[in-house]
Structure formats: C-alpha cells, structure tokens
Simulated scan of single mutants.
Amino acid sequence: MSDLWVFGYGSLIWRPGFSFAERAKGRLAGYHRSLCVRSHVHRGTPERPGLVFGLDRGGSCVGMAFRVEAALAEATIHYLRERELVTHVYRETTLPVRLEDGRLVRALAYVVDRGHSQYAGRLSASEAAHMVARSHGRSGPNTEYVTSALGEIRALGLSDSWLEEVVARL
C-alpha cells in the first residue's frame, strides 16, 4: 500500500485522531461543507438529534489534507471507518484534492448519503441553531462541536457566513 491522503472538512480538521506525516490546506471541488447530518450518536440522541458536518454536492470546500505514511494507512482507514461510518450516513470515497502548493492528490473523504434517513438537507440558520442548541451526545454538546468547527475554519483563513449566522443564534 502507498501513502494515504485523508481530507478533513469538519472535526477531522482539528482532531484527526491518527498519525500523519504531512498536513496541508486543500480544496475539494464539487462538494461543500454543510451542517446537513442529524447526529443520533456523537452530538445528539434519537429523541434530540444534533447536527454535524457532511460533504454535500455542489460548490467547493477548503479543508485540511493529511498524508499518512504507507505503513500506517491500513490502521488509519480502520480507525476512520469506525469513527465515520457508525450509522453509514457517509459514503467512503476517494476524490481529487488540490493542495495549496498546487499538488493534486487523491484523498479519502466521507461524503453524505442524501438518501440516508439522517440527511437533514438544507436548513435555515435559525433551524440549524435550534437543533444545535438543544443537542448533546456521546462526544459532548453540539454547540461545542459547531463553535469549535467555526474557530478552526477561521484559523484556516476561511469564512462561512451561514455558519457564522448559526453560531450567532446559539
């Protein structure tokens, strides 16, 4: 197996949970970051689902690409499958990511399955804030997840006006 690239767009940006040899800002075309997944485990419950990020069709997304050395690739994929495929709301795929230095890499990414029952679709900032404010799951409060994500997105030098509005309403 060769080196593995992993594309992070949500909590993987600040908490990858695996060892990596290189990290670089990267842009994924054809998908955007969206609070479009109802979380019944990590940031909510079945009675009070929270919202977590998914890569949804359309636009583009700047996130963080991580290069994992070949010797750790298999273990990293196993870890990511246990983390990201808990309820199978994401589809594991490999997509082209343009790194900020111009290199084009194929990176493992988790794209939302629009046909899954947890797919929330496009919500207004008010609807999203309402769900986020009242949700808490195995990994903690949903507000913590969303505000941390916004902080990390800002740290990348990016802006997300819709997410800013959600956080302002919390």
Score class of each variant (00 low, 15 high):
Met1Ser: 13
Gln118His: 09
Gly157Asp: 08
Leu55Asn: 11
Leu123Thr: 10
Leu163Gln: 08
Ala65His: 07
Glu165Pro: 05
Glu164Asn: 13
Thr147Phe: 03
Leu156Tyr: 00
Lys25Trp: 06
Tyr79Cys: 02
Glu127Val: 05
His40Ile: 15
Gly59Phe: 00
Met1Cys: 01
Tyr31Trp: 14
Glu82Asn: 12
Leu158Tyr: 08
Gly121Ser: 14
Val89Phe: 03
Phe66Pro: 12
Ala107Leu: 06
Leu123Lys: 06
Trp14Ala: 13
Val68Asn: 03
Cys36Arg: 01
Glu92Ala: 10
Gly151Cys: 11
Arg57Ala: 15
Gly59Asn: 12
Leu12Asn: 03
Thr76Val: 08
Glu47Thr: 10
Val41Lys: 10
Ala149Gly: 15
Ala149Ser: 10
Ile13Asn: 02
Asp160Asn: 13
Arg114Pro: 14
Arg67Ser: 04
Ser139His: 01
Asn142Leu: 02
Tyr119Asp: 12
Arg122Met: 09
Val105Met: 09
His136Ala: 07
Ser148Arg: 12
Phe53Asp: 03
Arg134Val: 11
Arg103His: 08
Gly10His: 10
Leu4Thr: 09
Tyr79Lys: 07
Leu72Gln: 15
His116Glu: 04
Ala109Gln: 00
Arg98Pro: 05
Arg67Thr: 08
Gly58Ser: 14
Lys25Ile: 13
Ala107Ser: 10
Ala29Asn: 13
Leu12Gln: 00
Pro96Asp: 07
Arg154Met: 09
Glu127Leu: 02
Asn142Met: 00
Ala75Thr: 14
Arg134Ser: 11
Met131Gly: 10
Gly54Leu: 02
Ala70Pro: 14
Ser19His: 05
Val52Trp: 00
Leu158Ser: 11
Tyr90Lys: 01
Asn142His: 01
Lys25Glu: 15
Leu108Ser: 00
Arg43Ser: 08
Leu104Phe: 00
Leu163Arg: 04
Gly140Tyr: 14
Ala70Asp: 10
Ala71Trp: 00
Ala70Trp: 04
Ser60Asp: 15
Trp5Phe: 12
Thr45Lys: 06
Gly140Met: 09
Ser117Phe: 04
Leu99Asn: 12
Glu165Arg: 06
His88Lys: 07
Ala75Ile: 12
Glu152Lys: 01
Ala21Met: 01
Ser117Asp: 02
Leu99Gly: 13
Arg81Asp: 15
Val111Lys: 03
Ser148Cys: 14
Ala24Tyr: 03
Met64Arg: 04
His42Cys: 05
Tyr145Phe: 14
Glu92Phe: 06
Val166Arg: 01
Val62Trp: 00
